[in-house]
Write a protein that binds this DNA or RNA. Structure first.
Lengths: 253, 253
DNA sequence: AACTAATGGTGATAATAGTGAACCGATATG
DNA sequence: CATATCGGTTCACTATTATCACCATTAGTT
């Protein structure tokens, strides 16, 4: 089923940042041969999971994916579970909250509720973040398999700010801490003046499917606010996990 | 890439009506060997497009599909295009309107705006309809390839009401009429006392990706209402097609 | 309790599939 | 007008996948 792996890996490369690819471009980024890439694309096009712009020849995700999402959402609602939790997080903390999915070694936010404050952290729907520098990515990774962790490490840890952890040993140590504590507090690892707290959301199989997080400007991230956010995020994530069928023991806090 | 075809075909069997499958059950319905089915599922699970309920062992669509839909929706909005048109249709006609997707030989509604009248036609999000008996299915099929048409015909045309067209020749004739006129008026072909009018929505490649439709009880489906609905649906569908990049000539009406 | 018929899942060989370098025509870019 | 890209295709070479028989387990029946 390695062919399926490849097809599915292909789909994973389409993102908010790059929703369209030329054939050669896609083959290059994915690392497959042009001929193979084309064949995979044709197979996906046949089923409407990819479509091609007839004028630019560029490939992008097709309408088929909408049907899948609808079916999934109708049978096992995710937005319906997550959105109220996000609303509540914003109400309690006054800061922007978001839900990110871990899928195919990528982390991308799929639910966002923004703070009403004028100086707030804004996210873009579907935007991907560096898995090793965002609190959402870090908590997911901490509870993922060793392979997933090695996968991230092998490409090196890109520095986004002066605080980004780029040393593999130090990074593993941090993951261990996250595993023990069940959350992560991010102090400007990804972006200057942005702090965030995230806790993992598990599914029925106790795999981390994503994370709930609240982000705030550093200026509003005092120890009092931090505690409040931490408690709120942790409880929301536990509630989400329970809603997804995971069996979460009492608070670790 | 026949393996990819199979994997993708598998995904197509998950629906609103049946969102979960046991292994044997799925292998039977799809027509693959149990071992093959399992391997395909494993490949899809690896990438989060399928997940398994650890207690019941049942397979269902995974969270991965949500990411794809988000990416697609952010880069090439569909809901954002279709919803206002549906709202407008309801405002003009006073009846329920919906947008259905044609994907993998199935027709399923992905956008619904209901009439405010108490006696209205209600749809379920993601529900599939018979492609040969719903106006949405018929208009899509009319502009689809011969293979698609033959695919539908080869399984026979199930009768849902006394008006359902079950004769293949008669059905082809109807499709030809739809091709000429650009719409279809459905008089209780699918459900007693329910009439509807649908027009196809095309994408940039001029393939029918779905249909916009308005449905009403037969009692409110007089010739005056019919004309009004037809015009509104036809124009809305043309607008949608244009928004998707299709080049639609002036009104055929 | 023994029997039957499902279920989910697996492993080894027979049968079939996918891969990729080279190539084509077309369109830019210098 | 030479070079380099693009999207797309071909065919000799090579890998993968299908199938069937089988196992362990569960549920219902006699």
């Amino acid at each position: 089923m390695q062919t399926v792996d490849k097809a599915v890996e292909l789909l994973g490369y389409f993102s908010e940042r790059q929703p369209e690819f030329g054939l050669s471009e896609l083959a290059r980024t994915v690392g497959f041969d042009k001929a193979s890439t084309r064949r995979l694309l044709l197979a996906l096009i046949k089923h409407d999971y990819i479509e091609q712009n007839p004028t630019t020849k560029a490939y992008r995700l097709g309408i088929g994916v909408l049907r899948l999402a609808r079916v999934r959402e109708t049978s096992t609602p995710t937005e319906a579970i997550v959105n109220p939790l996000l609303q509540k997080l914003v109400a309690i903390t006054g800061e922007s909250a978001h839900f990110s999915l871990l899928s195919g070694g990528r982390i991308s936010s799929v639910g966002i509720v923004e703070s009403s404050k004028s100086n707030r952290i804004s996210f873009v729907q579907g935007e991907e973040g560096a898995i090793h520098a965002t609190s959402s990515g870090i908590v997911c990774l901490a509870f993922s398999s060793d392979e997933s962790i090695n996968e991230v490490l092998k490409d090196g840890l890109e520095a986004f700010t002066e605080h980004t952890i780029t040393d593999a040993r130090q990074f593993r140590k941090m993951l261990q801490a996250v595993r023990n504590e069940g959350y992560h507090i991010n102090h400007e690892l990804y972006e200057k003046d942005v702090c965030s707290i995230a806790a993992p959301v598990f599914n029925q199989a106790m795999r981390p499917i994503g994370a709930l997080a609240v982000a705030a400007p550093t200026s509003r991230f005092g120890s009092g606010a931090k505690k409040q956010i931490l408690t709120a995020v942790y409880e929301a994530a536990a509630a989400a996990s329970r809603a997804f069928g995971a069996e979460i023991d009492g608070s670790k806090l």
